[in-house]
Amino acid sequence: MGSHPYADVFVSEIWQGAVSAFWLVVTLDSDLLEITLRSLQVTLTAVLIASLIGMPLGAFLAVRRFRRRRATVAILNALMGLPPVVVGLVVYLLLSRAGPFGVFNLLFTPTAMVVAQVVIVTPLIASISHQAIRELWAQYHDLLISLNATLIQRTATLLFDARRALLTAALAGFGRAIGEVGAVMIVGGNIDHATRVLTTAIALETSKGNFALALGLGYVLIALAVAVSLAAHLLSRTERSGTW
């Protein structure tokens, strides 16, 4: 009994995609290199900024008691599900000529893509950080109060000691940002040699029916995400036995 013809086509596309990816990487295709580096640059910048905002925010929400704190945490958690396309639209309106930040001429630049990704990723990083730091705060509370640690010292201690969990938060943010297409397409415009990144290139190649190349770029994107995650874990030695 022969296999279904569509299955053959599917397997063929997957295989051709792998071959395309292989040749793109082996030949150090200049276009691939350019959009890969831009993807990394935009995403890493966005994750760095989002971490600088989200991690202290998560720690603050864990340590500080104030009115409507629970509501704030609930809103933060809800913002994790922000639709990227809507974020892209709002950032587009803010950065467009008629918008309040139009004077900076940022629309259709990598900076605009960074801004959109920061908006998308910050709630995710803040929320995961908050969860991790809240648990640590429950353990450390009595000790830090006993030692008269100030709010800043408490926050710094928790951020430092929760660094492994915070790395996970940052990697979750990286994963979301590197694979994001809707917002960066709107605010970046997918302009060749200017704002094209891996995800928008995949969308473009797919729309052109160039599935093998699109799949090839997809493989590169997956490899990139996995490589960054592994590198982060290796650098921070999270899996080394006997250490925290």
Binding site: Y140, D142, L143, S146, D161
Partner: peptide, 17 residues
């Protein structure tokens, strides 16, 4: 007052360090 005391808890609270 508290800065001039120390407290040892029944279950030691240790930093991840």
């Amino acid at each position: 007052a508290r800065a001039r005391q120390s407290f040892v808890f029944q279950h030691p609270i240790l930093l991840r360090r």
